[in-house]
Design a protein around this nucleic acid. Structure first.
Length: 400
RNA sequence: GGUGGGGUACCGAAGCGGUCAAACGGGGCAGACUGUAAAUCUGCUGGCUAUGCCUUCGAAGGUUCGAAUCCUUCCCCCACCA
């Protein structure tokens, strides 16, 4: 791949790029010296479920690998053990060493669904941060001013609002920047929320006598609610290790507007193709549901396995469009004695208290053999193959 | 060290002696509508052996017939000024 081709591939879909010229120069030098660039990507070890939000970045990393470059995937285990301040104002709990290691293992397994292991270097930042003395930390801090850190958007806002900012949070960007120095990153990738931290990496590299890294940010995609960015803590995510059924179902519940973004950043479809589909949808030539079905099938094929998408799509249509039963109903064993409906719903685990079961029944959410029962005093005698349905998606086949 | 503001259910936030299991908003759940879209509308959202009872408003005591609300002590958080 020549440099121009690489540039085209590598800069697709980005938000910020600092700077295109520098990237070009680095690519030219790398080509001349027949080596790959080092592309840094940092991951927080507290949330070991890789979800579609991460896939946006991983896809880009994969493209760098395709162009012959090396990905340096840094697991922030050191910072994870201290407690990672998330952007908002809440401070995440510190993880134990065991948890961090466990999470890291799970990370590795997942990222190689997308990345090429041959061209990936997985590093833990405790490797170098754990060695540092307090003196080293102080020296490092000398390179950065409070005003610089305070310039970060969320810090300045919180400061202006008299909201707390812990010193750890202040140090955090510095730690991340230092990682860039240690791994000698040529390029660092991150979400748009990382821009500040990535830029600080440049500053620190310069201060340490290195060529500053090129910084590229990618969009943060909204999660299932369509408003907030996809994140584990908000519970609005689709994990890449989830079942075909879950991935498909969750994608189908995404809004029509958001689905285009997913096509672009998750499936990496090119903009012309997406535009063409969009036009067909607005002219009525194509049903949005068909487009979303394609999104679901392709995503499942990619994350679960080829051919699984079609199955998931059919299963979905059967359950929700035709209102039939899923093919893998959990079976629940019960004695063949008459019992109250409320008790049945609680016993099967579909409600966590009698009160909740009562509510579900009164609201018409409970069906037995497809017959809605809204009398809370109703009793049932379980029989083999009796089907209990609670809400839209909880099913069970009773067994006596 | 000083001053001021706080700690209420999953979250945010009202309430400041009885009518408080605690307004309102968000979230969640269920129903209607649908493409399980989204949006919208409706209802529910502490527990129980259930017209009552029990636990809950940072903690422990106290005042009172009665406390989330008043008093005392304690714990914790935040901002500002030094």
């Amino acid at each position: 791949m020549n440099v121009e081709q690489q540039l085209e591939l590598l800069t697709a879909r980005h938000v910020d790029l600092i700077s295109a010229d520098e990237l070009k120069k680095k690519l030219q030098i790398a080509k001349k010296e027949k080596r790959g660039l080092r592309i840094k990507y940092g991951a927080d070890p507290s949330a070991p479920d890789i979800h579609l939000g991460h896939v946006v970045g991983l896809n880009k990393l994969r493209e760098f690998q395709a162009a012959g470059h090396t990905v340096v995937f840094i697991i922030g285990d050191f910072t994870g053990m201290i407690g990672d301040p998330s952007g908002k104002s809440a401070t995440r709990p510190a993880l134990s060493k065991e948890q961090v290691l466990e999470n890291a293992e799970s990370y590795k397994k997942q990222i190689f669904k997308i990345l090429d292991p041959e061209k990936t270097e997985v590093r833990f930042n405790s490797e170098w941060l754990g060695e540092m003395k307090f003196e080293d930390v102080i020296r490092l801090s000398a390179h950065v001013t409070v005003a610089q850190i305070l310039a970060r958007d969320d810090f300045s806002k919180r400061y202006a609002d008299n909201k707390p900012i812990s010193l750890v949070e202040f140090l955090y960007p510095l730690i991340q920047a230092y990682d860039s120095v240690v791994v000698e990153a040529d390029v660092e990738l991150g979400g748009t929320d990382q821009l500040f931290n990535l830029l600080l990496g440049r500053e620190l590299q310069k201060a340490c006598g290195q060529e500053p890294q090129v910084v590229m940010t990618l969009p943060l995609i909204e999660g299932l609610d369509g408003v907030q960015k996809m994140s584990k803590s908000l519970g609005n995510y689709i994990g890449i290790t989830e079942s075909a059924k879950e991935i498909f179902g969750k994608l189908m519940s995404v809004s029509d507007e958001l689905m285009w973004k997913y096509f672009m950043h998750i499936l990496c479809r090119n903009p012309e193709e997406i535009e063409a589909m969009r036009n067909k949808v607005s002219s009525g030539e194509l049903h949005p549901r068909a487009v979303k079905d394609e999104l679901g099938r392709c995503a499942v094929d990619r994350f679960v396995g080829a051919g699984e998408g079609q199955k998931a799509s059919e299963e979905f249509a059967r359950i929700f469009s035709k209102n039939e039963l899923p093919d893998d109903l959990p079976e629940i064993q019960l004695p063949a004695e008459e019992l109250g409906l409320i008790e049945l719903v609680v016993r099967t685990g579909f409600a966590s208290s009698n009160g909740e079961a009562r509510r579900l029944i009164q609201q018409g959410g409970v069906r037995i053999d497809d017959e809605q029962i809204s009398d809370i005093k109703a009793t049932v005698t379980p029989k083999d193959s009796m089907i209990l349905k609670v809400g839209k998606r909880k099913f069970a086949r009773l067994k006596v």
